[in-house]
Design a protein around this nucleic acid. Sequence first.
RNA 1: UCCCCGAUAGCUCAAUUGGUAGAGCGAGCGGCUGUUAACCGCUAGGUUGCUGGUUCGAGUCCAGCUCGGGGAGCCA
Length: 466
Amino acid sequence: MPMAWMSVKEALAADPGVGLTVKGWVRTRRDSKAGLSFVALSDGSCFDTLQIVAPADLPNYETEVRRLTAGCAIEAEGELVESGGKGQRVEVRARSIRAVGWVDDPDAYPIAAKRHTFEYLRKVAHLRPRTNTFGAVARVRHGLAQAIHRFFHERGFSWIHTPIITASDCEGAGEMFRVSTLDAVNPPRTPEGGADFSQDFFGREAHLTVSGQLNVECYCLALTKVYTFGPTFRAENSNTSRHLAEFWMVEPEIAFADLSDNADLAEAFLKHCFRTLLDERPDDLAFFNQRIDDSVLATLEHMVESPFERVTYTDAVRLLESSGERFEFPVAWGADLQSEHERYLTQTTFKKPVVVTDYPKEIKAFYMRLNDDGRTVAAMDVLAPRIGEIIGGSQREERLEVLDRRIAETGLPRENYWWYRDLRRYGTVPHAGFGLGFERLVQFCTGMANIRDVIPFPRTPGNAEF
RNA sequence: UCCCCGAUAGCUCAAUUGGUAGAGCGAGCGGCUGUUAACCGCUAGGUUGCUGGUUCGAGUCCAGCUCGGGGAGCCA
């Protein structure tokens, strides 16, 4: 009768004396001439490994146990006992160990039991989840995703599955990936010689979404409190540690709400995420704090307690101008804040997240609500120390005549926005929302410097190998 | 896309003014040990990213390309 299968996490928390089976992958094996081998086993259920003690009298000790190397998959059956050594409370005294999957060529196994650079591990993205760091990232990512859904669910929000493919070009934010089933070499042609997208799958040109916002606004003006959480695509040729061509975005949208309500929501939302992570993933956070960024724990703990700073764009410009700091790019009202300006605000002036509001209308999107001054719009960016913009949002323009004027000023074709404009014709209400880059949140919580290391298989210009 | 930097053993790196390519870690074998970043000894492991050029001779100098990193822009 086989013993109950327990995860490493369960085994590490259990009382000595129970019989159990554990399954996972070997991290290290150490042999002792006292007639023992020690196997450190990981199954990803928690940060720590479980030590398995294999006595030399196991029938397959010489033929199998002594040949185990990093990466081998095994099943071990035995008894959980108090550890005879230092470094762990309990360990498994094995009655049997079965090698399930061997490592072909231990010398060439890409994940040797030693330090690797993140650049190298990106080249072996299929095996990097077996490392301490990427296992921890995966668990933190999951923990944050769950925290997000719980936060909204507990507050009466509905998760809206907005489309991945968008056949309207209403979104207008940046370069988009085309979705087409036309023959790429010899597409049907229009009289003018271009590709004839009326013969394409959707009967028109289609792309991958760059934002679910316009769609989710429709549901906001019916269900009041809604959000999206899904993949988003940008075909920008961005080569930075903060950009991906495919990333996940969270976009809440609330009706009968203004910019102040929106900022309150963003702050409560981020604090909930940090609090949950501190409660549920202390093992992984301790690792990031020790090995990746020694300010991560203190920063998260500080952030759940202290209110975010809020400052208007105009005041932020004044603060930067009077700071005495020499910036590479000059600060001027009307120009967008540069990365160095955002860093100065979050890391020098306030030393915490800053909500910057009310930007000049010229540097923001057409759908953001025009303020009474006629020069600024009710936009907000939440800037986080070290990674910059983590949230971008706004109160939406709910007045049809103002929206039309903004569409015209921006030079956009009004007819493309017919259904978006309809929302302003039929029961329009003040509403607001924001977009959060999920990977940037994971970066902030873990201290990971490159966004390519907080998503399982990063897509960037020239890179979609896995 | 722009600026700067880089590519040498499975991994991280070294190699003087251009002159026989090395170390640590990892791996294999042996020794020692309730071990845990183990330790000691031995062994194996290289078309120096690709293409061309200069030279008696190129890891080293030059040009182009590919890939990667840092910064900037675009943004989340």
